[in-house]
Design a protein around this nucleic acid. Sequence first.
DNA 1: AAGGCAAGCAACCGCCTCTCG
DNA 2: CCGAGAGGCGGTTGCTTGCCT
Length: 249
Amino acid sequence: MVRTPCRDENGRNKGTWTPEEDRKLAAYITKYGSWNWRQLPKYAGLARCGKSCRLRWMNYLRPNVKRGNYTKEEDEIILNLHAQLGNKWSAIAVHLPGRSDNEIKNHWHTSLKKRANYNLSEGSKKCNNKKSESNITKRMSSVENQNASATNNNNNNMHEHIVLESSEWSPKESSSEELSSIDYQQDIFHEEFGNLEEITSGSFWTEPFEVDGKIDFVAPSIDYCGLVCPPSPFMPHEFFDFDDCNNYW
DNA sequence: AAGGCAAGCAACCGCCTCTCG
DNA sequence: CCGAGAGGCGGTTGCTTGCCT
Protein backbone atom coordinates (compact mmCIF):
# COMPACT_ATOMS: atom_id res chain seq x y z
CA MET A 1 0.00 0.00 0.00
CA VAL A 2 2.93 2.28 0.61
CA ARG A 3 6.17 2.86 -1.15
CA THR A 4 9.21 1.69 0.69
CA PRO A 5 11.50 4.41 1.96
CA CYS A 6 14.44 5.15 -0.30
CA ARG A 7 16.64 8.03 -1.37
CA ASP A 8 16.87 9.95 -4.60
CA GLU A 9 20.09 11.06 -6.30
CA ASN A 10 20.23 14.15 -4.08
CA GLY A 11 20.07 12.06 -0.94
CA ARG A 12 16.53 13.16 -0.23
CA ASN A 13 14.09 10.68 1.18
CA LYS A 14 11.41 9.27 -1.07
CA GLY A 15 8.59 6.88 -0.50
CA THR A 16 6.78 6.32 2.73
CA TRP A 17 6.83 9.01 5.35
CA THR A 18 8.07 7.85 8.70
CA PRO A 19 6.32 8.86 11.95
CA GLU A 20 9.37 10.95 12.76
CA GLU A 21 9.07 12.88 9.49
CA ASP A 22 5.36 13.38 10.05
CA ARG A 23 6.07 14.66 13.50
CA LYS A 24 8.61 17.18 12.28
CA LEU A 25 6.45 18.40 9.43
CA ALA A 26 3.28 18.75 11.45
CA ALA A 27 5.06 20.45 14.31
CA TYR A 28 6.71 22.92 11.99
CA ILE A 29 3.65 23.81 9.94
CA THR A 30 1.46 23.99 12.99
CA LYS A 31 3.78 26.58 14.38
CA TYR A 32 4.86 28.54 11.33
CA GLY A 33 2.57 27.63 8.52
CA SER A 34 3.68 26.91 5.01
CA TRP A 35 5.52 30.13 4.32
CA ASN A 36 7.55 28.53 1.53
CA TRP A 37 7.14 24.89 0.61
CA ARG A 38 10.51 24.60 -1.08
CA GLN A 39 12.44 26.06 1.82
CA LEU A 40 10.29 24.46 4.48
CA PRO A 41 11.89 21.00 4.55
CA LYS A 42 15.28 22.54 5.14
CA TYR A 43 14.10 24.45 8.18
CA ALA A 44 11.88 21.67 9.42
CA GLY A 45 14.85 19.32 9.34
CA LEU A 46 13.37 17.12 6.65
CA ALA A 47 15.27 15.49 3.81
CA ARG A 48 12.28 15.79 1.49
CA CYS A 49 11.39 17.97 -1.43
CA GLY A 50 8.92 20.76 -0.80
CA LYS A 51 6.27 19.27 -2.99
CA SER A 52 6.39 16.05 -1.08
CA CYS A 53 5.93 17.97 2.17
CA ARG A 54 2.99 19.87 0.77
CA LEU A 55 1.34 16.71 -0.45
CA ARG A 56 1.87 14.94 2.84
CA TRP A 57 0.43 17.86 4.76
CA MET A 58 -2.54 18.42 2.49
CA ASN A 59 -3.53 14.78 2.19
CA TYR A 60 -2.65 13.33 5.53
CA LEU A 61 -1.43 15.56 8.32
CA ARG A 62 -3.66 18.58 7.82
CA PRO A 63 -6.09 19.04 10.69
CA ASN A 64 -9.64 17.81 10.20
CA VAL A 65 -8.64 15.70 7.27
CA LYS A 66 -11.15 12.92 6.81
CA ARG A 67 -9.94 9.58 5.67
CA GLY A 68 -11.86 6.70 4.19
CA ASN A 69 -15.48 5.93 5.04
CA TYR A 70 -17.12 7.96 2.32
CA THR A 71 -20.76 8.54 3.05
CA LYS A 72 -23.41 7.93 0.47
CA GLU A 73 -23.99 11.65 0.47
CA GLU A 74 -20.37 12.41 -0.30
CA ASP A 75 -20.36 9.84 -3.08
CA GLU A 76 -23.37 11.47 -4.64
CA ILE A 77 -21.78 14.88 -4.45
CA ILE A 78 -18.62 13.62 -6.09
CA LEU A 79 -20.55 11.86 -8.81
CA ASN A 80 -22.65 14.92 -9.47
CA LEU A 81 -19.74 17.33 -9.46
CA HIS A 82 -17.67 15.07 -11.64
CA ALA A 83 -20.48 15.00 -14.16
CA GLN A 84 -20.43 18.80 -14.16
CA LEU A 85 -16.74 19.56 -13.79
CA GLY A 86 -14.93 16.52 -15.08
CA ASN A 87 -11.57 15.65 -13.51
CA LYS A 88 -11.29 18.92 -11.63
CA TRP A 89 -10.47 17.21 -8.37
CA SER A 90 -9.45 20.31 -6.53
CA ALA A 91 -12.69 22.01 -7.51
CA ILE A 92 -14.62 18.98 -6.32
CA ALA A 93 -12.65 18.90 -3.09
CA VAL A 94 -13.80 22.44 -2.31
CA HIS A 95 -17.30 21.06 -1.85
CA LEU A 96 -16.19 18.30 0.48
CA PRO A 97 -14.68 19.71 3.65
CA GLY A 98 -11.90 17.55 4.99
CA ARG A 99 -11.38 15.64 1.77
CA SER A 100 -8.27 16.21 -0.29
CA ASP A 101 -8.23 16.27 -4.06
CA ASN A 102 -5.87 13.33 -4.08
CA GLU A 103 -8.11 11.23 -1.90
CA ILE A 104 -11.18 12.10 -3.94
CA LYS A 105 -9.30 11.21 -7.09
CA ASN A 106 -8.28 7.86 -5.62
CA HIS A 107 -11.79 7.20 -4.42
CA TRP A 108 -13.10 8.01 -7.86
CA HIS A 109 -10.71 5.65 -9.59
CA THR A 110 -11.25 2.83 -7.13
CA SER A 111 -14.98 2.82 -6.70
CA LEU A 112 -16.99 5.71 -8.09
CA LYS A 113 -15.82 5.36 -11.68
CA LYS A 114 -17.51 2.00 -11.91
CA ARG A 115 -20.64 3.42 -10.37
CA ALA A 116 -20.58 6.36 -12.73
CA ASN A 117 -20.27 4.06 -15.71
CA TYR A 118 -23.07 1.94 -14.36
CA ASN A 119 -25.25 4.97 -13.77
CA LEU A 120 -24.48 6.18 -17.26
CA SER A 121 -25.69 2.98 -18.80
CA GLU A 122 -28.65 2.88 -16.45
CA GLY A 123 -29.33 6.49 -17.28
CA SER A 124 -29.81 5.65 -20.89
CA LYS A 125 -32.60 3.34 -19.82
CA LYS A 126 -34.27 5.72 -17.41
CA CYS A 127 -34.83 9.40 -17.59
CA ASN A 128 -32.84 11.57 -15.20
CA ASN A 129 -34.52 12.07 -11.91
CA LYS A 130 -34.58 15.84 -11.43
CA LYS A 131 -35.90 15.50 -7.93
CA SER A 132 -32.89 13.56 -6.75
CA GLU A 133 -30.62 15.97 -8.56
CA SER A 134 -32.05 18.90 -6.69
CA ASN A 135 -31.63 16.98 -3.46
CA ILE A 136 -27.95 16.59 -4.21
CA THR A 137 -27.69 20.30 -4.97
CA LYS A 138 -29.32 21.06 -1.63
CA ARG A 139 -26.93 18.78 0.18
CA MET A 140 -24.02 20.34 -1.62
CA SER A 141 -24.99 23.82 -0.57
CA SER A 142 -25.39 22.68 3.00
CA VAL A 143 -21.91 21.23 2.92
CA GLU A 144 -20.63 24.45 1.38
CA ASN A 145 -22.27 26.48 4.14
CA GLN A 146 -20.52 24.34 6.68
CA ASN A 147 -17.32 24.99 4.87
CA ALA A 148 -17.91 28.72 4.73
CA SER A 149 -18.62 28.93 8.42
CA ALA A 150 -15.48 26.98 9.06
CA THR A 151 -13.57 29.51 7.00
CA ASN A 152 -15.08 32.36 8.97
CA ASN A 153 -14.03 30.69 12.16
CA ASN A 154 -10.54 30.43 10.79
CA ASN A 155 -10.24 34.16 10.63
CA ASN A 156 -10.76 34.35 14.35
CA ASN A 157 -7.60 32.50 15.07
CA MET A 158 -4.29 33.74 13.87
CA HIS A 159 -2.52 30.41 14.09
CA GLU A 160 -5.23 28.61 12.30
CA HIS A 161 -5.32 31.20 9.59
CA ILE A 162 -1.64 30.85 8.96
CA VAL A 163 -1.60 27.13 8.83
CA LEU A 164 -4.31 26.54 6.36
CA GLU A 165 -4.34 27.56 2.80
CA SER A 166 -7.99 27.19 2.04
CA SER A 167 -9.21 24.80 4.45
CA GLU A 168 -11.20 23.58 7.33
CA TRP A 169 -8.98 23.78 10.30
CA SER A 170 -11.35 25.02 12.88
CA PRO A 171 -13.15 22.37 14.80
CA LYS A 172 -16.79 22.30 13.96
CA GLU A 173 -19.27 20.97 16.36
CA SER A 174 -20.71 18.25 14.52
CA SER A 175 -21.22 14.82 13.30
CA SER A 176 -19.50 11.85 14.79
CA GLU A 177 -17.51 11.59 11.60
CA GLU A 178 -16.05 15.04 11.98
CA LEU A 179 -15.33 14.32 15.59
CA SER A 180 -13.53 11.21 14.63
CA SER A 181 -11.34 13.16 12.26
CA ILE A 182 -10.56 15.59 15.04
CA ASP A 183 -9.82 12.62 17.22
CA TYR A 184 -7.54 11.38 14.52
CA GLN A 185 -5.73 14.68 14.45
CA GLN A 186 -5.37 14.63 18.20
CA ASP A 187 -4.14 11.09 17.99
CA ILE A 188 -1.45 12.18 15.59
CA PHE A 189 -0.26 14.82 17.97
CA HIS A 190 -0.49 12.69 21.05
CA GLU A 191 0.81 9.47 19.66
CA GLU A 192 3.48 10.90 17.43
CA PHE A 193 4.34 14.12 19.22
CA GLY A 194 3.59 13.40 22.83
CA ASN A 195 3.09 16.60 24.74
CA LEU A 196 4.73 19.92 24.09
CA GLU A 197 7.35 19.35 26.73
CA GLU A 198 8.53 16.26 24.93
CA ILE A 199 8.81 18.09 21.65
CA THR A 200 10.43 21.21 22.93
CA SER A 201 12.77 19.63 25.41
CA GLY A 202 15.81 17.56 24.70
CA SER A 203 17.78 17.64 21.52
CA PHE A 204 15.05 17.27 18.97
CA TRP A 205 14.90 20.88 17.82
CA THR A 206 18.33 21.93 18.86
CA GLU A 207 20.27 19.41 16.87
CA PRO A 208 21.86 20.88 13.77
CA PHE A 209 19.95 20.19 10.59
CA GLU A 210 21.29 17.65 8.24
CA VAL A 211 20.45 18.57 4.69
CA ASP A 212 21.61 16.50 1.78
CA GLY A 213 23.98 14.74 4.06
CA LYS A 214 25.59 17.98 5.25
CA ILE A 215 25.07 19.74 8.50
CA ASP A 216 23.42 23.09 7.97
CA PHE A 217 24.82 25.52 10.49
CA VAL A 218 22.87 28.46 9.18
CA ALA A 219 19.85 26.99 10.76
CA PRO A 220 17.39 29.65 11.85
CA SER A 221 16.85 30.60 15.42
CA ILE A 222 14.90 28.57 17.88
CA ASP A 223 11.79 30.27 19.13
CA TYR A 224 10.37 30.33 22.61
CA CYS A 225 8.47 27.16 21.93
CA GLY A 226 11.56 25.34 20.83
CA LEU A 227 10.62 25.35 17.16
CA VAL A 228 12.79 26.66 14.38
CA CYS A 229 11.75 30.11 13.25
CA PRO A 230 11.92 30.58 9.48
CA PRO A 231 13.96 33.53 8.26
CA SER A 232 11.04 34.86 6.33
CA PRO A 233 10.04 38.50 6.07
CA PHE A 234 6.49 37.25 6.31
CA MET A 235 7.13 35.47 9.55
CA PRO A 236 8.82 37.83 11.96
CA HIS A 237 9.30 36.55 15.48
CA GLU A 238 7.04 39.19 16.89
CA PHE A 239 4.31 37.92 14.62
CA PHE A 240 3.58 35.18 17.09
CA ASP A 241 2.25 35.36 20.54
CA PHE A 242 4.74 33.03 22.11
CA ASP A 243 3.16 33.41 25.51
CA ASP A 244 0.20 31.67 24.04
CA CYS A 245 2.32 28.80 22.90
CA ASN A 246 1.40 26.36 25.58
CA ASN A 247 -2.24 27.32 25.49
CA TYR A 248 -2.26 26.58 21.84
CA TRP A 249 -1.12 23.03 22.45
C1' DA B 1 0.00 -23.61 1.73
C1' DA B 2 1.38 -21.06 -2.12
C1' DG B 3 1.09 -18.43 -6.17
C1' DG B 4 -1.51 -15.15 -9.04
C1' DC B 5 -4.26 -11.28 -9.49
C1' DA B 6 -6.92 -7.19 -8.66
C1' DA B 7 -8.07 -3.43 -5.58
C1' DG B 8 -6.75 0.34 -2.75
C1' DC B 9 -4.03 4.11 -1.78
C1' DA B 10 0.22 6.92 -0.74
C1' DA B 11 3.37 9.22 -3.21
C1' DC B 12 5.88 10.78 -7.40
C1' DC B 13 6.19 13.23 -11.80
C1' DG B 14 5.66 16.72 -14.92
C1' DC B 15 3.07 20.35 -16.72
C1' DC B 16 0.49 24.60 -16.09
C1' DT B 17 -0.54 28.89 -13.80
C1' DC B 18 0.43 32.60 -10.91
C1' DT B 19 3.30 36.04 -8.76
C1' DC B 20 6.97 39.02 -8.33
C1' DG B 21 11.11 41.49 -9.53
C1' DC C 1 6.72 42.68 -21.08
C1' DC C 2 9.57 38.92 -19.72
C1' DG C 3 11.75 35.39 -17.11
C1' DA C 4 12.42 32.83 -12.93
C1' DG C 5 10.67 30.66 -9.07
C1' DA C 6 6.98 28.75 -6.40
C1' DG C 7 2.54 26.63 -5.86
C1' DG C 8 -1.11 23.79 -7.54
C1' DC C 9 -3.13 20.22 -10.13
C1' DG C 10 -4.05 15.91 -12.58
C1' DG C 11 -2.13 11.68 -14.30
C1' DT C 12 0.43 7.86 -13.17
C1' DT C 13 3.23 4.61 -10.64
C1' DG C 14 4.34 1.11 -7.49
C1' DC C 15 3.78 -1.13 -3.12
C1' DT C 16 0.76 -3.66 0.12
C1' DT C 17 -3.08 -6.35 1.14
C1' DG C 18 -6.65 -9.47 0.63
C1' DC C 19 -9.12 -12.61 -2.09
C1' DC C 20 -9.35 -16.40 -5.25
C1' DT C 21 -7.79 -20.58 -7.38
